[in-house]
């Protein structure tokens, strides 16, 4: 075959045209853009947020669809074509340096998003996301509105739940610190309230718990557990001050089960997210013990009812029942141990 100008110029164009007919033009004619069962339209504010998302390259780190292969890996629903009805562009994304956002709406409260956009490490200390404070308040609100839209009808249901409980949580917070704690504890199922932390607060367990606290809790609840972390000023209601909890032990002795439940489940309506996807059981018990010993000054670890001890458990006498050590003493002890 001799490649004459005619053959290769006309041939190139023809083969290319055949390809686009099949791969671009045919889908264009045959695919219909119809809304899915969960789709809802965007309002102006959400659209503005979508534009900010697109223009600033959020999709380089966040995907906007749940893949077929995510099934069974934490996803509740695989994305459908109609989810993207009229979205322009449907900015699917190519990487997950950050989490998928296609069902982000209603996962967190608006004020959580505000703190997170101002500095992502305020809510997620390990985050690699840049700070977006420079966008200014208005654009952050628009972005937040867009986040809360993602997930469509499913998001709307979650948002309704957030709003319902946020109102109650604010009301409880404004009624004063002690009644607030009472309200929070009363919303924990009774079986959990009368439950001690079943695992000993050994030094190793506290070290593990401290690690979790630093990576997940630090910037809301603060380095001394008083609820004055960097995110606190953006949050309504603000994070709980752990140091007041000693007055609120269930039956004057239990706090472990309450901690576990609140960490696992989060407190919908407040910025406290649920951690059941991120933290497995041991880590929740460890961080509960850490918060109890360091900030409450008391842990119910290993007290009755205790069942059969797990096989790994060392011989351990709970020293934190009566006269808990101060933080200085804890640090000193740690240095001595090393």
């Amino acid at each position: 075959m001799k490649m004459t100008p005619k053959i290769f110029i006309i041939g190139s164009v023809l083969v290319w045209a055949a390809s686009i007919s099949l791969m671009v033009i045919f889908p264009w004619i045959s695919m219909e853009d119809e809304p899915s069962d969960i789709w809802t339209p965007m309002n102006e504010k959400e659209k503005a947020g979508h534009d900010i998302y697109v223009n600033n390259g959020c999709h380089y780190c966040h995907s906007l669809y749940v893949r077929t292969i995510d099934w069974g890996k934490g996803a509740e629903r695989i994305s459908k074509m109609g989810d993207y009805y009229q979205m322009q562009p449907a900015i699917l994304g190519t990487e997950r340096t950050g989490p998928d956002l296609s069902q982000e709406g209603g996962e967190h409260t608006d004020d959580w998003h505000k703190a997170h956009f101002i500095n992502p490490r305020y809510t997620n200390p390990l985050s690699l996301m840049p700070s977006w404070e420079f966008l200014g308040e208005k654009k952050i609100e628009q972005l937040t509105a867009y986040m809360q839209h993602l997930g469509w009808k499913m998001a709307d249901k979650r948002m309704a739940r957030q709003e319902k409980w946020q109102e109650k949580a604010i009301e409880a917070y404004e009624a004063g610190p002690d009644s607030n704690i009472t309200w929070l504890h009363n919303n924990v199922p009774e079986e959990w309230r009368n439950m001690p932390n079943p695992y000993p607060a050994t030094d190793a367990a506290l070290a593990r718990g401290r690690n979790i606290y630093e990576n997940f809790c630090l910037n809301c609840h603060g380095p001394v557990g008083d609820g004055q972390g960097k995110a606190a000023k953006y949050l309504d209601p603000p994070p709980v001050n752990f140091t007041t909890l000693k007055r609120h032990l269930a039956e004057d002795k239990y706090i472990g089960g309450i901690f576990y439940y609140q960490i696992m489940n989060g407190i919908t309506g407040t910025a406290m997210p649920y951690f059941k996807r991120q933290l497995e059981s041991e880590k929740i018990w460890d961080v509960s013990n850490f918060v109890a010993v360091w900030f409450v000054g008391y842990t119910d670890a290993n007290i009755e009812p205790r069942g059969i001890d797990a096989s790994y458990e060392p011989e351990w006498e709970n020293p934190y029942l009566e006269d808990p050590p101060t933080m200085e003493e804890m640090d000193k002890k740690k240095e001595e141990d090393q």
């Binding site: 791969m23 989810d83 993207y84 979205m87 322009q88 562009p89 449907a90 699917l92």
Partner: peptide, 16 residues
Amino acid sequence: STGALPGILDSIFHWF
């Protein structure tokens, strides 16, 4: 204005 088509069809054009 957007350089995109509405809906998921856009991804076909985009990734083409």
